[in-house]
Amino acid sequence: MEREVIEEALYEVIDPELAINIVDLGLVYDIQIAESNEVFIKMTLTTPGCPMHDSILNGVKNRLLQIDEIEVVTVELVWEPVWNPSQMSLAAKKQLFG
């Protein structure tokens, strides 16, 4: 399984408050693919105690499980390193800064 396929799928997980996908927001820290078709995602959120906490995490699982080859998805939410705006893509910055 290609890492790009997973990344591409994660572009479709949108933060409903900011209306920007989690990859462009720089929330995804690491993607690991095990041989057993298990995918491990390490990610953060823009702020600890984000009300969309569970929704976004479930969104990641839901989207990746739609890919046929993936059988198990584990999402680890971390607060370190702390998310900062420099992690956003240019497209996300443009959308936020107007």
Binding site: I14, P16, S55, V60, N62, Q66
Partner: peptide
């Protein structure tokens, strides 16, 4: 936000859901 959570939280990543 509350209503979005009730109506759409389970569908995020599965289908297109509205933004807040």
């Amino acid at each position: 936000f509350l209503w979005w959570t009730k109506q759409y939280a389970d569908y995020i990543g599965k289908e297109k859901v509205p933004t807040l």
